[in-house]
Design a protein around this nucleic acid. Structure first.
Lengths: 216, 216
DNA sequence: GTCTATATCCCGATAGAC
DNA sequence: GTCTATCGGGATATAGAC
């Protein structure tokens, strides 16, 4: 069955798939190039034909993760019919993605990849940025600063719920994911309803140093 | 002079201190018993006289972290004079603590300690939980469920801002920490102002959770 | 209570054979 | 493109000397 020399069909793709599986099992911390190689049935040196080092493989996973994230958010948005509902749907999709694609989510926000080294990663984020930012802007027509502040707060709501959910802070009873996602969406609606309190000083006293959308 | 040996000193405390320093430099991921031992000036086997294993030292750091967290939140609360301001102050303290005591914060939320193994950790959390949930209850007199939902949402706001801030999503310009903490507090106030949308089913009938709101 | 020494395991990365 | 072999590093943890 095994010839003395064995050429893999598409090792590069197999390594990315294996990395996702491994991260799903052990988290980003438990990821290692060696273990991924083992699972792909190749020696630890084989991956270096396709990736310069460990981080380059992680970055490839990251690109796929951003794409999946974008797809998930887009799917959620399509079912909504008002700016408010669209924002709530995005928050809901954000939380659900974190759980259902936990490995990808961990790579997105926990891999600490060097963005300057992997410009394709930063580039992959752009459509997601547009998606999030554009959805929020509809809530604050003609007020860019307000949209940025509101967008950051909404994202923090999504991210906070997602992280605490992944940490197990909400327990693991059946239905918890949908429950928490729904509550995150409701929190988003509550924040939108009370958003007048977001900018206490009516003027734009504090220009934001923040980037509109995250990306590790 | 700092002693290079702890033969007759308090190695246990020195290890906890060193662990915090190390985590502050390299994060929880970069923590290792070996490196902490090196920094304390003892061999890698010495800590095993005081801690059964690596996680037991981390748990000791965790207990100290919870205590410091509680202290930070309490200090913020004391300066507030209304339930809303108290909640906002807690969120602000939460975010600032995450940055100023980053190592402790990482242990609290990123060490993934087995709480069933370290009941003292779970016990240490109880006063903090009471602080967070109790402060919220004043906003929802006589409605425990609403208080829980609101409390979880507020905590998610704090946690989301803190995590994104630590991840560098908001950049590192001077003043960013105070700025983000203030925005998190404002988001808390906005959420409180619009909290009717948090419980779409039980509150006064609202046809749509978020109907058009007067713009800025 | 700490040290020396050791066992065992993991990792990332490279050189050269085929 | 993959393998074999290897280097250099680090980790946790234990046994026994002092």
């Amino acid at each position: 069955m095994s010839p003395s020399r064995y050429h893999h069909g598409d090792l590069k793709a197999a390594l990315v798939d294996g990395a996702i599986e491994l991260i799903a099992e052990r988290g980003v911390r438990g990821f290692s190039l060696a273990e991924v190689s083992r699972r792909a049935g190749v020696t630890v040196s084989a991956p270096y034909r396709h990736f310069a080092d460990r981080d380059e493989l992680l970055a490839a996973v990251g690109v796929r993760a951003v794409s999946a994230f974008q797809q998930a958010l887009t799917a959620e948005i399509e079912a909504a019919d008002s700016p408010e509902q669209r924002a709530a749907a995005m928050i809901r999709g954000y939380v659900i993605f974190a759980v259902e694609q936990r490995a990808l989510f961990e790579v997105l926000f926990g891999a600490n990849l060097d963005k300057s080294r992997f410009p394709e990663l930063r580039q992959a984020w752009e459509p997601v940025d547009d998606l999030l930012e554009g959805g929020i802007r509809a809530l604050c027509p003609g007020d860019e600063d307000a949209a940025t502040v509101l967008g950051d707060a909404l994202e923090a709501i999504a991210h906070g719920h997602a992280m605490l959910l992944l940490d197990g802070s909400y327990g693991d009873a059946p239905g918890t994911v949908q429950h928490v996602a729904a509550r995150a969406a409701n929190a988003a609606l509550a924040l939108i309803a009370g958003r007048a309190a977001l900018t206490p000083g009516s003027g734009p006293a504090m220009p934001s140093p923040a980037e509109p959308v995250p990306g590790p």
